[in-house]
């Protein structure tokens, strides 16, 4: 078997002097869809930010290998150009930077890095229209500044638009399903499903089983207190839906844990 796309071992990280990730192990192979669930504050977004390289989150020990290279060595923009994509739990509004300018800079930085020709305006608009259509986004939103005055649902859809434009290898989606109405959830899920491919892996951070009805995960992890407490198949998500996290919080019984490697085998 060839090397995993992402291999995290013993990852510890802190922010603002608080230890948040405490020895996290996770392995994701190309083609897989993983789901990470866990109570509020368990460190899911922190993991996502550490993977994307957010300043202020300091890795104190452990390692992250992405495509066999040390991900933590790379700058955030290098990671993105190398194919790591984080869909933000809270996409940032950037007044004064137009969506057109932003997307064009973004896609052409990634394309140039891959040795592809940068897109001209016509080519870019063509691509963009297609991706917008998939998630049912109105082109007129592009006249505004990045995420500015987008509704919660529009922001989440827009993350999917960016993801499909950039065609990353590793997609980390942090609660992209939160704040979506029922129809939007279906549309966004469809956008995610379209992106599934044997070369690409997805990590879906979610609180709700309903996303997983649309996007069937291969592996479900439960994250508690900054580490993976249990991993299993998609039935684990159903079990969580029924019983909550009581089985995991406060308890730290290694016997309960399934090795993620085994689960994915």
């Amino acid at each position: 078997m060839h090397e995993p796309l992402l291999k995290i071992e013993g990852l510890c990280a802190e922010a603002g002097g608080v230890e948040i990730l405490r020895g996290l192990d996770l392995q994701v192979n190309a083609g897989e869809v993983h789901s990470i669930m866990g109570p509020n504050g368990s460190g899911k977004s922190t993991l996502a930010k550490v993977l994307a390289g957010r300043e202020g989150y300091e890795v104190t020990s452990g390692s992250v290998l992405y495509k066999g290279q040390d991900l933590l060595e790379l700058e955030p923009d290098e990671r993105a150009r190398e194919g790591v994509f984080l869909a933000f739990q809270y996409p940032v509004e950037i007044p004064g930077v137009s969506n057109m300018q932003f997307l064009k800079e973004s896609i052409n930085a990634v394309r140039t890095h891959r040795g592809q020709e940068p897109l001209d305006t016509v080519g870019f608009l063509g691509e963009l229209r297609e991706k917008l259509a998939v998630v049912g986004m109105n082109e007129q939103l592009l006249q505004r500044s990045v995420n500015e005055d987008f509704s919660g649902g529009e922001k989440k859809r827009y993350e999917i638009v960016q993801m499909s434009l950039l065609e990353p290898s590793l997609c980390v989606l942090d609660e992209t399903d939160s704040g979506l109405d029922i129809d939007a959830l279906r549309v966004v899920s469809e956008g995610i499903n379209r992106m599934r491919s044997p070369e690409r892996a997805m990590v879906l951070v979610t609180h709700y089983q309903r996303l997983l009805n649309y996007v069937q995960p291969d592996i479900v992890h439960v994250m508690v207190g900054g580490r993976i407490a249990q991993s299993g198949g998609k039935e684990l998500a159903l079990q969580l839906e029924e019983r909550g996290y009581a089985d995991f919080t406060g308890v730290d019984d290694p016997a309960q844990q399934t090795n993620p490697q085994e689960a994915s085998a």
């Binding site: 994307a52 390289g53 957010r54 300043e55 700058e75 955030p76 923009d77 990671r79 993105a80 150009r81 994509f85 984080l86 933000f88 996409p91 940032v92 950037i94 007044p95 004064g96 930077v97 300018q101 932003f102 800079e105 973004s106 896609i107 930085a109 990634v110 890095h113 500044s145 990045v146 960016q162 950039l166």
Partner: peptide, 22 residues
Amino acid sequence: AEFYLRARGVPERVAKLLLLQA
């Protein structure tokens, strides 16, 4: 804002310049 732009592959210098221009 800078992180958001960089997380989309925009190089640091360009991201900062976009924000200054804005």
